[in-house]
Amino acid sequence: MMKTTLLAGAAALLFAAPAFAEIEVHDAYARSASPMSKTGAAFMVIHNDGGAADRLIGVSSDAAARTELHTHEEDANGVMRMIHVEEGFDLPTDGEIAMVRGGKHVMLMGLTDSLDQGETVTITLTFEQAGDVVVEVPVDLERQDHGGMDHGNHGSMNHGTDG
């Protein structure tokens, strides 16, 4: 009787546990406008490969004094301006967040060092459900755009156990 009760309790806990998103980061790269720039940006495609929907709620990096989630928005005069998105970005089940130039991106402000071609920048993405995902993002100053994403080029990832 005791064994049956314990098994039923364990099964109930298993089914009650939330289904966390399986976060994958593809095609990541970082850049700055020039070697003397005090700001830079990182771009990537964040994919939720099943599990529950999630939300990217924060970002951090030792490469900059401040790291924020940003996007571009057109004002009433047709002028594009960059804005900090404090609430973060939704990541639907089997969906993605495309962080591209001229759109959503990770903004690196007050760079602690120059972003040099071929080096890497460590960026921690913080999700509401999945917790922290650490990504090693290569610096690519030569890249012209984010189009034609190569999903075979993955940044190194460390899926955190927070959540």
Rank of each mutant, 00 (worst) to 15 (best):
N153I: 10
D132P: 01
T4N: 07
P92M: 03
T5P: 00
M1W: 10
A52L: 02
H26R: 07
K3S: 10
A65M: 04
R101K: 12
H146L: 11
V121Y: 05
A21D: 00
A17F: 14
G88N: 11
A12K: 05
D75M: 06
H159N: 13
V137A: 05
M149W: 03
T39Q: 14
A12S: 05
V121K: 01
D49C: 03
V25S: 00
N158V: 15
V25G: 01
E119A: 15
A42W: 02
V121H: 04
T93R: 13
G131M: 08
I46R: 13
R101M: 13
Q129T: 03
Q129M: 15
G131E: 00
M99D: 00
G95S: 02
M80T: 02
A64N: 04
D94I: 04
F127W: 06
N77V: 09
G155C: 14
G88S: 06
R143Y: 14
G103Q: 13
E68S: 09
I46Q: 07
S34V: 02
E24H: 15
G160P: 00
D140A: 10
L125V: 03
V121W: 06
Q144H: 14
R31H: 09
T122V: 12
L115V: 07
H84A: 00
E142L: 12
G152M: 10
M82F: 08
D145I: 06
R143G: 12
E74G: 04
A65T: 09
L56E: 02
Y29H: 14
V45A: 06
P35T: 07
A19V: 01
G148V: 09
E136A: 12
A52E: 02
M44K: 00
D49H: 11
A17L: 10
M149H: 04
D90S: 09
M44I: 06
L69Y: 02
H159M: 13
G160V: 06
T39V: 13
A10L: 12
E142Q: 11
H105Y: 07
H26S: 08
G95H: 07
G95Q: 05
L56A: 01
A30L: 05
G103H: 12
G147C: 09
G110R: 06
E73V: 12
A52V: 01
T39Y: 08
T120K: 11
L56R: 06
A33M: 01
R101S: 05
E24K: 10
A16Y: 08
G88W: 05
T39A: 14
H105S: 11
S60M: 07
G51A: 13
A19N: 10
S32I: 02
F15M: 13
D162A: 15
V85Q: 05
P35A: 03
T71N: 11
I23W: 05
Y29V: 03
A41F: 10
D140H: 04
R81Y: 11
H146F: 04
G51I: 11
R31V: 02
A30W: 05
T122F: 01
L111Y: 08
T120M: 05
H105V: 05
T120R: 06
L13S: 07
